[in-house]
Design a protein around this nucleic acid. Structure first.
Lengths: 335, 335
DNA sequence: CTGTTAGCGCATTCAA
DNA sequence: TTGAATGCGCTAACAG
């Protein structure tokens, strides 16, 4: 392995000078810099990151934690897309990205501890937010830099997070249905532990209230992201005496299952039933019918979270921030 | 920061003894081990990974390189699923997983160099394989441990890779169509640079030949994974005087676009046209109709690649291996 | 079975 | 503007 010493020897300077050239220290002559750089190139020198990390007490690496994947949640195109957003700013900052590999909550928790205690990473991005999450609590305890994509369950004002205004979005998208004359509108959401589910549902409820529509508990359904999730929800809904005519679904992926099951039973969308949804994943454009859905700018969610985290790691003491990514409704044919 | 020295002091032994306890060296008394462990717990000690990496000359980290994401390829549920597979064995081996963040070929290439030269990782998994890939060539030049998910373009026998028998799979799935009496069968594939596209298409061609069916160049279409990819392909196909009655599509995601566009034009599947596909991504179950597709065991592809790579990194000199993951056809309703 | 010593490759004082 | 010395936290060889 070619080290800083070899470069020093070849270029006739001291190791510390080489180190300074690497850091592009302005107190080094352009001339010697040139000389040293030539030697580096000649020897094919590249700094050893572990050595550097050791002394710098920083790894310039960010940990990204995905939710537990017992379910197929991960298959949600949401994740590749946030990852792209995160990746773009991480890449530009010359950081590296360490992805969680655990599948269960236990594994993930253990892994986060390794990341934190072993100083694998300078900060962590959480790609989910839910009630009483061990990981979140741990990170807070340790006072370790992290940001949440989504809204924290508690300590909102002391936590940096990047989110949409899901309440408002839920309200707006529900209004789309109401404006079309729908009065029996159901909500189908993901796990009720997820903050995002709650927010969107609250928006849905508010919209109903404002319109003076009756709020019906049997119209609020929580299900899995699994393929069968949307299907089960539909089966339940169809079993009701009073069937809804409008559906607010909190995730495009669930919508897929919903539509599929609905058409199986002979219901056609939007003729028999209208449906609106969230996320504007690329799929929502391909489906039949294409989905009217809330574009939450997934990429941007990722990018901003990475940006905020990096700021936070370089500049400890950075205050907690709340970053709201604007959404917009994309009108297509499911209403 | 609490270091090995602090633990040593508190437990009244030397730093090296502590180090040995960490490594669970059998030449240390159970008694002292207990003592030392107690001190570690008491102080909340955790080894610093950078320091360890520095002396061990290994990071126990694996780099995973995704294809350039100029297109929406990444949104393909294939990737989360391989990542899950990779993650599972990486996690079990207590390795960590560094994900590429670059979007363009240039960025990716630069990033791989950083990973390799900076010794960020012990080995690399390539999640794609295509003609004349710079990254692959670089890795070979450097004689850096890597494995490909897919079949290498060249130096097949000297490269470790994990793949399906895509030729055979292509043949079998095409036969499904032929056996049903289809004679005009088209192939819609992804980029022709991708080895996987070529293999599957070759299988398709072989099947045609064996059945004595005419092979028609205007029936071989290459398109993007983009949403519009499948659509364009269909438009072209519909413009032909002699329209096919069967479609072999090399990716479930493309199939989605194909079906959507097809039904838009009033063609119904499988009544007017039959379609078979590849990957058995969860989507293929949700679509209408559910897809008859080749299950390529994506998770397993990932897991095996990680396993092979780790073996390779711990045991340099490990010979190149070819690992073929069996596929099976999942019969659903698109035929 | 355990302690002493040295050194991994680098960045950073402090001198010069 | 540069060099010499020191130490980051850890492991491993060598003693004992």
């Amino acid at each position: 392995m070619v080290t800083i010493k070899d470069v020093a020897k070849l270029s006739g300077v001291s190791p510390s000078t080489v180190s300074r050239v690497i850091a592009d220290n302005p107190r080094i002559t352009e001339e010697t810099k040139k000389k040293v750089r030539k030697a580096m190139k000649q020897l094919g020198y590249h700094p050893n990151i572990s050595a550097r990390n050791l002394v710098a007490k920083s790894t310039k690496a960010i940990g990204v934690i995905m939710p537990s994947s017992a379910n197929t949640a991960l298959q949600n195109p949401f994740f590749p897309e946030v990852l792209r957003g995160i990746g773009s700013v991480i890449h530009e900052a010359r950081y590296s990205l360490s992805l969680s590999t655990g599948e269960t909550d236990d594994e993930i928790c253990e892994e986060v501890k390794r990341m934190v205690f072993g100083r694998y990473v300078d900060g962590i991005i959480l790609l989910y937010s839910r009630l009483n999450d061990r990981v979140t609590n741990f990170l807070r305890e340790q006072d370790f830099p992290f940001v949440i994509v989504g809204k924290p369950y508690e300590n909102e004002s002391e936590t940096t997070y990047v989110d949409n205004d899901n309440l408002k979005a839920g309200k707006e998208i529900t209004k789309c249905l109401i404006d079309k004359g729908h009065e029996k509108i159901a909500f189908i959401g993901g796990s009720s532990d997820l903050i995002v589910t709650k927010d969107r549902q609250d928006g849905y409820i508010e919209a109903l209230k404002e319109a003076g529509l009756e709020e019906n508990d049997s119209y609020k359904i929580h299900t899995e992201f699994l393929k069968s999730g949307g299907r089960e929800a539909v089966e339940y809904l169809l079993s009701l005496k009073e069937k809804p005519t409008g559906l607010v679904v909190s995730d495009d992926l669930i919508s897929l299952g919903v539509i599929s099951r609905l058409e199986e039973s002979g219901y056609s969308i939007p003729d028999d039933l209208s449906l609106v949804s969230f996320n504007n994943v690329y799929l929502s454009e391909i489906t039949r019918p294409p989905l009217t859905t809330v574009d939450i700018q997934i990429y941007e969610l990722g990018a901003q979270s990475a940006k905020a985290l990096i700021e936070k790691t370089v500049n400890k003491g950075e205050p907690a921030k709340r970053i709201i990514i604007p959404h917009k409704i994309v009108y297509r044919d499911s209403v």
